Amino acid sequence: MPVNDPADAPMTRHRWPALLAIALIVGGVALAFGWIAGWLTPGRLTPQRFTNAIESGNGQIYRGYRRAHAKGVCVAGYFEGNGQGVALSSARLFAPVRTPFAGRLSIAGGSPYGLDGKARVRSMALELNSDDGQQWRMAMNSFPFFGVSTVSAFYEQTRANTPDPATGKPDPAKQAAFLRAHPEFARFASWAKSAPWSTSWANTTFNGVNAFRFINARGDVRNVRWSMQPQAAFAAMTAEQRAAADGNFLSEDLQARLARAPLRWDMVVTLAQPGDPTADPAQPWPEDRQHVTVGTVVIESSTPQANGACRDINYDPLVLPTGVQGSDDPILAARSAVYSVSFNRREHDIASGKADTAVGKTAAPEARP
């Protein structure tokens, strides 16, 4: 066999540019992953560092559980579009069809043993699977706007709330320094202090908070936010009710309500006007913006998250169908990245047998991973 065949020389010469291009692409991908992970810039804020801060803020790591909103229940049902959203987005679920979902109702905090009566923030997450094979994941909260405007401020807020090992409570000096550095947080603090607490998940409004883009079949783009507004009448808890509330009263109330009938929330989309901020979730849009009710979320059943469909779902808010895009809000991208890290850590806990429940610790059914 000849060592070099002259007939192969032209092919070899033509192949080199392609091989070089492939090498550059692979190298670029590797650099991108290195940058994202923080390997190339050790001082940069990464999803891993942010998740570490959340774990520290929890006081301890609860293996096998979500690092945030650890306590919750799985729910199932469907979204029923009413056709009003078709003019705004080409997403299939806005048509007059029923789209099934696997969802989760939860409370804020990193402890799966948290007390419902002390949880200021409540949440709803949905994974909707439309009949065209596309998926939409939503993660919504009971607060109407975010506490801070930037990712770095969000990280600093998390660090400021980390318990001091000596006292088991956050350091007041660090919290005061955070408030001085981020005066926009005063609006959120005022909401947390003055807004009434609902008596149930069923009569709580859940807000998307971050801005998104809807694109219709013609290619028209609108900046939007949305909320799930309950059809159940709102009722406020008194201070006495909160003090006396059972630690699991939200899940107990949910089961009692579902035994009587399904629960419903209307999806109300708010349309931005030119100049409304889309990159700052701490800035609410004016109340006079147009609102369009595009369909209804219907919860039919609930199961403990230990064996429910929601346990192994990462409710990444950037898993979106055609007709919906993320906005320029940097906190939206940060949430997506941190959710991924948290998901990978708890799934590793479960797969490796390190989850708390796998080593003999017992939690109420609705509080398991």
Results as ranks from 00 to 15, higher is better:
M1C: 03
V3E: 01
A7C: 07
T12Y: 10
W16I: 12
L20W: 10
A23I: 05
A30D: 01
L31C: 07
I36P: 02
A37T: 10
L40A: 10
T41D: 04
T41K: 09
L45N: 06
Q48F: 15
R49Q: 14
T51P: 01
S56P: 00
N58C: 13
G59T: 00
Y62G: 08
R63Y: 00
G64W: 04
A68N: 13
H69A: 12
K71L: 15
Y78I: 03
E80S: 15
Q84S: 14
A91S: 14
A91R: 12
L93Y: 15
P96L: 09
R98P: 12
S106I: 02
S106G: 04
S106C: 03
Y113W: 09
Y113R: 13
G114C: 05
G114L: 08
K118Q: 12
S130E: 02
S130I: 05
D132I: 15
P144K: 03
F146N: 01
V148Q: 03
A153L: 11
Y155D: 10
Q157T: 03
P172G: 09
A176R: 09
F178Q: 08
L179H: 09
L179P: 00
R180Y: 02
A189D: 15
A192M: 14
A192L: 14
A195E: 00
W197A: 03
N203L: 02
T204Q: 07
V209N: 07
A211F: 10
A211H: 06
N216G: 03
R218D: 13
G219Y: 06
D220K: 12
R222I: 06
Q229A: 05
A235C: 00
E240C: 06
N248K: 13
L250I: 03
L250H: 02
D253G: 01
L254N: 01
A256I: 02
A261L: 03
L263K: 00
L263A: 01
R264K: 15
R264A: 15
R264H: 15
V269Y: 07
G275V: 11
Q283E: 07
W285M: 02
P286L: 06
D288F: 04
V294W: 11
T296F: 07
V297H: 00
G308C: 03
R311E: 07
D316P: 13
L318V: 12
P321S: 08
T322G: 11
G323N: 11
V324F: 02
S327P: 05
S327W: 09
A333Q: 14
V338R: 07
S340Q: 14
R345C: 09
R346M: 13
I350F: 05
K361L: 15
A367T: 04
A367P: 03
R368A: 10
